[in-house]
Amino acid sequence: MYKKLGFLLLSIIFVFLIGSQKLYAYESHNVKDYLNYLTEKEVNNLQRSIDKIKEKHDLELVIVITDDTEGKSSMEFADDYYDYNGYGVGDDHSGLLLLIDMNARVAWISTTGSAIVFFDNSKIDEILDKVTPYLTDGRYYNASKAFVNFVRSDLSYFYRALSMLFSLQSILIAIVISLIVTIILSISSKGKVTVDSRTYEEAGGFKLDVVKDQFIRETTTRVKIETSSSSGGGGGGGTHIGSSGRSHGGGGRSF
């Protein structure tokens, strides 16, 4: 009888232990998984990659998985989460945040600082293209990994070089400059003129007889200087200002 009681006690304790594992949400500095979709190992993997990117490219990545956005829209929540938790590298707080909002079923990417320019709307669309299919399938680790991997490879030197090479702009600039230089070089002179008005002048032969400098009239005009009020609320198109006063870029998609 005592043996049976003992077994029951042990199994109850065992269940509690296992249960408590699930209740305890493992999170790292940059990976905030409030819904326990990710294992400790997966979180660590992501954190490591994020650290590498931060070190190499001065951009901080954040991943937030939640179903409670405190009544705010996905965009507002993502921006505020980033701002009020002090993420970001440098004076402009550069970085990206991926919000997986399980309540609205929206994936939202918020960009700050130099990431606004580099990860513009079309890039954000590309990221979402890669990430949302995984989310629809419920593969949250894969989605997060896709996010991190995309940012990493996009920042890599060779990728940037290749995309610069194959842009129409650089091809056109190269052709235009080459054309101008070739034309200039083709106007090769026959020779330099080294004769001026004095070459054949007899020494001391020049005499100035008449010198007149008569003042005729004078005019004064004035032009108003336009005080250049710097226009443009910085950051270009597609940006908005979060509640913290900082401007963010971003985009989202439902899954």
Binding site: E202, F206, E218, R222
Partner: peptide
Amino acid sequence: TSGNYKYTNTKYYRVVRGGNSKYSK
């Protein structure tokens, strides 16, 4: 420049020069 304005003052002159010179070879 003074205040918000850029001023341009132009003085016009009638200039005359006359002279002679010897050229050799």
